[in-house]
Amino acid sequence: MTLKQALVHGLWEDLPPFRLVLGLCPALAVTSSAENGLGMGLAATFVLVFSNMFISVLRKVIPDKVRIGSFIVVIATLVVLVEMIMKAYFFPLSQQLGIFIPLIVVNCIILGRAEAFASRNPVLLSMADGLSVGIGFTISLAVLGSIREILGAGTWFGWQVFGASFEPFEFMVKAPGAFICLGIILGLMNAYSRMRGETFIQT
């Protein structure tokens, strides 16, 4: 894979969570508003870029038998760091995201990229991969959060979108709304890809 490929593959071809269908737990749980989705995506991107970097640096040092354990330690360290930084500088966001920040540790996208990519590729390429998948994840969560927030609360990033007469579908900001929204987006993306004759989609 070239650097350019590594930089763009996470934006459409391997777009998480829609294409990889990984990391669904945070994608469904925190996207009740656009801001939460964006915040979660950025936190995950930070962890992803640096976990890919450290794991790629250490890939020849880490013995194969304890690689998963080593990856988890690296990822967990970064996540705790993100949690502390968020508490120090973006306290309200950290209260909103709550338990889902520590849960980035077990986000399968991050461990997945570490195992499938960073442990076999040089540093720069791994960081590019992390950045690309991370940005894809951030955009996806922000879009998912936006749709749910606009329909479910009538606001976007806290701004009133509709007039006072708009009755929000409260259902959209609850858990079932997340599943339905995700399903519709996934369906539309697959239909579009099939129409264009792209070959990488699951049929």
């Binding site: 880490i62 330690v73 360290t77 760091l81 502390m84």
Partner: peptide, 13 residues
Amino acid sequence: VLSLICGISAGAL
């Protein structure tokens, strides 16, 4: 290796 990784992580945190 595992001890070193854990030690460095703990130090950084």
